[in-house]
Amino acid sequence: MSEQTGKQMSKEEKDARFEAELLPVLDPLYNFAYRLTLDEDDANDLVQETYLKAYRFFDYFEQGTNAKAWLFRILKNSFINEFRKKSKQPAKVDYSEVEGYYNSEDVEGESGVASTTDMRTESVQDLIGDEVASALNTLPVDFRTVIILCDLEGFTYEEMAKILDIPIGTVRSRLHRARNSLKEKLEKYAKSMGYNS
């Protein structure tokens, strides 16, 4: 039974195997799609399309291979093709607006200055998370992608090279440049909040 390939399986068996092996990746896959498109509906469409493509090629999927990396690769390619087709850019969050918002809060809210100094409070944690997300969203999509794959999803350089179809050396240099760019954006924010890095 376990030796059976997709081609010999009944549809019920194939569906059951597909769900058991590939649906557990739904959460990270949706998160990746959301970070690429920055839009819930687009992420939804992209994930559905990815699973349908994966289903079509499931006969060629070998049990025990890296299902997560395979799905991420399909999704990344769908994203590139989709956006090329529509010649539409992902929704952009205007970083300067977000930055301006925090700056004006800083200036106008002189009465509540002490509230942000306790790093343990949940709201500060949220604020940091929001700021990291805003900074990340302003990065070019190639930079955003490597940071998410590496730091959020924990893929190895080798897996990233396979997902993105680029040499490992390019993964390394892209990640390095992406981090420099993110650092720059976050340092600006840290300074505006009065932290000297």
Partner: peptide, 21 residues
């Protein structure tokens, strides 16, 4: 690296998504 891995919030997958797939 810790800022991204520890502070970036994960989005919640809509319940309908798995069903529709």
């Amino acid at each position: 690296k810790g800022l991204v891995s520890g502070h970036l919030k994960r989005v919640i997958v809509p319940e309908s998504l798995a069903l529709s797939i």
